[in-house]
């Protein structure tokens, strides 16, 4: 077990639920941050924190698609190929990204820069075809733009993946007006969301 398990954020997460088993999913995200993905060690740590067996944590983690069982590239590119995006050319976007990043669907590129996956609907159908990089969204992406985005990621290696920035550079039609510019983005191929703000923990 590494030291992360004694972090304050862990205490806060555990404290926001009436039953500590509920903390399994948020803790799996934190553990995945520590270990890079949902490794056996990550699951073992979470099991210990929540009083479950490793088998129980594995059972939960493997039910969901976002707890990755294998190492993920710096940039996890998820291409929606569900019905609305398919109708708008999502398959071509996927093909363009696979080609440009030299990473087949479901795999990670040689240098570990890209992981590419096709995904089911990500709730961006009005901005189809849609792509997420580290779960930050770009809508209305055409194949050429998608290629450009891959090159940009490869050449620029942004530390923070910002949806607004990518949308401006490579996006098109959006599902709706995105509103204010966001300054928060993703540092890792994991959803950039901290559940342990000031809200209601310890109750």
């Amino acid at each position: 077990m590494t030291s992360w398990t004694t972090d304050e954020r862990v205490t806060r997460i555990l404290g926001s639920y009436p039953d500590k088993r509920s903390a399994v999913m948020p803790l799996l995200y934190v553990a995945s941050k520590e270990y890079g993905y949902t490794t056996s060690d990550a699951m073992r740590d979470v099991a210990q924190l929540t009083g479950l067996t490793g088998a129980q944590v594995q059972s939960v983690a493997s039910f969901y698609t976002m707890y990755k069982r294998h190492g993920v590239g710096t940039y996890l590119v998820s291409v929606c190929t569900s019905i609305s995006c398919m109708l708008r050319g999502g398959d071509d976007v996927l093909a363009a990204i696979e080609d440009e990043s030299d990473t087949p669907d479901g795999e990670t590129s040689d240098g570990g820069l890209f992981s590419v996956e096709h995904v089911e609907c990500i709730g961006a159908c009005g901005g189809a075809p849609a792509v997420q990089v580290n779960y930050e969204l770009v809508e209305g992406v055409e194949p050429d733009q998608a290629r450009a985005m891959c090159r940009w990621l490869r050449d620029g290696r942004p530390d923070v993946v910002l949806g607004d920035e990518m949308q401006e550079l490579f996006g098109g039609q959006r599902s709706f007006d995105w509103g204010p510019k966001e300054t928060e983005g993703a540092l890792l191929p994991l959803p950039a969301f901290e559940p342990y703000g000031t809200a209601g923990e310890g109750r």
Binding site: S40, M43, R44, L52, T53, G54, A55, Q56, V57, Q58, S59, S62, F63
Partner: peptide
């Protein structure tokens, strides 16, 4: 009271399995 075998994955990939080293 010793849940050491559990379902893993979901849907058509669901399987019963133990945890590595457990």
């Amino acid at each position: 009271g010793d849940p050491l075998i559990e379902f893993k994955e979901r849907g058509n990939n669901t399987q019963v399995l133990t945890f590595p080293d457990e």
